[in-house]
């Protein structure tokens, strides 16, 4: 039971990251492999601001603002000039941006792991939950994660920007001829995706003791796997895939097979893709003859 809650909590972190991958893929038709490193920047933003002993609220706001801006800048500087270039060029650029961010983080923050300030680690106790063995961090992550996902769904379904995003992801050519500024929509997508990454970074700091320049790599690749499992491009798919992987990871860690956790996690991808090649909630595109 506790493992399950922990898994759901970790899963909602993965889901938040996977949403970033899947939204960018759906709208810009590219894989933003630098997404994991935006999480790292968000986490460092928390660690650094907290080291000046400011209120956690300030740290949270700083992290969100920084990540959102970073997302927009990455898109403008690295990806926008490649609009219309071959997907392979964009993919390599994304990997380049990822290493660039890790390199800069090493230069600026040093390669030594930085401990997370104790305010962040010692959350106020919630006795009724803590007695059951559920940590406050896990509870906060789970609740906030669900709230953010509901808010995102509402944003996409019920706002004009959201509808434009859906339209662009379905048929960019038709959308642009209906007067939609595709570049603006792509920028908004990167901004929203990166803000989600900031949240993921914050919650991830509940799980790990130190921040280091490569901290985004593992959750990043796991969440990417989650997005593919759910069906890349599908928003509910990313949520389902993320939560599934989080639960599987925690259940494995609690079982005698714990040393095979990573292997099991990624084998799941292979198994699911064998059965459903487009992912759990992916669109089935029938090839027309």
């Amino acid at each position: 039971m506790i493992t399950l809650i922990d898994g759901l909590s970790l899963g909602s972190i993965y889901a938040l990251i996977a949403l970033g991958y899947t939204m960018v893929y759906g709208i810009a038709k590219m894989l933003n492999f630098a997404h994991g490193d935006v999480i790292m920047v968000g986490a460092y933003a928390i660690v650094i601001t907290l080291s000046y002993s400011v209120s956690p609220i300030v740290a949270i706001v700083a992290s969100i603002v920084l990540c959102t801006l970073l997302g927009i800048v990455i898109e403008k500087v690295a990806y926008k000039p490649l609009r219309g270039a071959s997907p392979l060029a964009v993919l390599i650029t994304a990997i380049g941006v990822s290493y660039f961010l890790q390199g800069v983080a090493q230069l600026v923050f040093g390669s030594q792991p930085k401990p997370v300030a104790s305010v962040w680690r010692q959350l106020p106790a919630i006795p009724s939950l803590n007695d059951l063995g559920i940590t406050t961090g896990a509870a906060v992550t789970l609740v906030c994660g669900v709230i953010i996902m509901v808010a995102l769904t509402l944003f996409i379904k019920c706002t004009k920007t959201g509808r434009a995003m859906l339209a662009v992801s379905e048929d960019r050519g038709a959308a642009v001829l209906m007067g939609i500024n595709v570049n603006k929509i792509i920028t908004v997508t990167f901004a929203v995706g990166s803000a989600l990454a900031a949240f993921a970074g914050m919650f991830y700091l509940f799980q790990i003791p130190n921040a280091e320049p490569t901290l985004g790599a593992m959750p990043g690749i796991t969440a990417f796997t989650a997005a593919v499992i759910g069906g890349i491009g599908s928003i509910p798919g990313a949520m389902v895939g993320g939560i599934l992987l989080g639960v599987v990871e925690k259940l494995c860690l609690a079982s005698p097979l714990s040393s095979y956790t990573v292997a099991i996690k990624f084998s799941l991808l292979i198994v699911i893709l064998l059965v459903k090649p487009t992912g759990l909630l992916g669109k089935i595109t029938r090839e027309k003859v």
Partner: peptide, 9 residues
């Protein structure tokens, strides 16, 4: 929604 998208701008 199809029509509302076209009202966007």
């Amino acid at each position: 929604s199809n029509v509302m998208v076209a009202l966007n701008n």
